[in-house]
Simulated scan of single mutants.
Amino acid sequence: MHKLIKNEFIKLHYRKKFVITIIIFALICGLFSFAYSKVQKYSTPDAQISILNKSKTQLQNEKDSTSDSTKKEQLEQSISGIDSQIDQLKTSKASTSSKNWKASLKNQIDSLKDQKNSATDISSDNAKETYNKQIIFYQYFIDHNIKPQANGSFSAFNFLDSLFKLLGSLFIPIIIAILSADIVSGEYTPPTMKMLLTRPASRSKILISKFVAILASSIIIITVIELVSYLIMGIIYGFDNPMYPVLVGTKYTSSAIKLSQDSTGLIPVLGSSYIIATWKFIIQMFLFQLLYILACCSLFILFSTILRSSTLSMTLSILATIVVNILSSISYLAKATPFFFSTYGSISSILDSSIIQSTGVTYITPLFGCIFLIVFSAICYSISAYVFHKKDINI
Rank of each mutant, 00 (worst) to 15 (best):
S329H: 03
S78G: 13
S67W: 07
P148S: 15
F25Y: 15
S304C: 11
I122C: 01
F211P: 01
M1E: 13
Q261Y: 13
M285I: 06
G345Y: 03
S111G: 01
F141L: 02
G265C: 06
Y274H: 13
V248K: 05
K335P: 13
M285C: 15
S43L: 12
E187D: 15
Q149N: 12
I176V: 15
S349H: 13
E187L: 10
I28D: 09
A156V: 09
A47W: 05
S80I: 11
I350W: 08
G249I: 11
D240A: 03
S78E: 15
N241V: 04
S272H: 09
V224D: 07
L163I: 07
K390Y: 10
K3Q: 08
L12A: 05
S349T: 15
S329R: 00
S104V: 07
K116G: 03
A216D: 04
D64G: 00
K205T: 10
K165R: 12
K56E: 03
C296Y: 03
S202Q: 07
F159S: 06
Y131K: 04
I82C: 11
S342A: 03
I22P: 02
V212H: 14
E8T: 05
V228D: 09
M193E: 06
D46N: 13
M243K: 06
A177R: 05
S111C: 04
E62S: 03
S37W: 10
K93F: 07
T66F: 15
T362Q: 05
L373N: 00
S95W: 09
D46C: 04
I322M: 04
L302K: 01
P245A: 02
P173C: 00
S304N: 05
I330N: 01
F159H: 13
V387K: 13
S273F: 07
S382Y: 03
S162A: 13
T198Y: 05
G186E: 11
I208S: 12
N151M: 13
A216V: 10
F211S: 02
H13A: 15
K72M: 09
F137P: 00
I282L: 14
V269Y: 03
M243D: 08
S65A: 15
K133H: 11
L59S: 14
Q74S: 10
I51G: 05
I221W: 10
D121V: 02
S69E: 12
L247P: 01
I301F: 11
S67H: 10
K147T: 07
G186C: 13
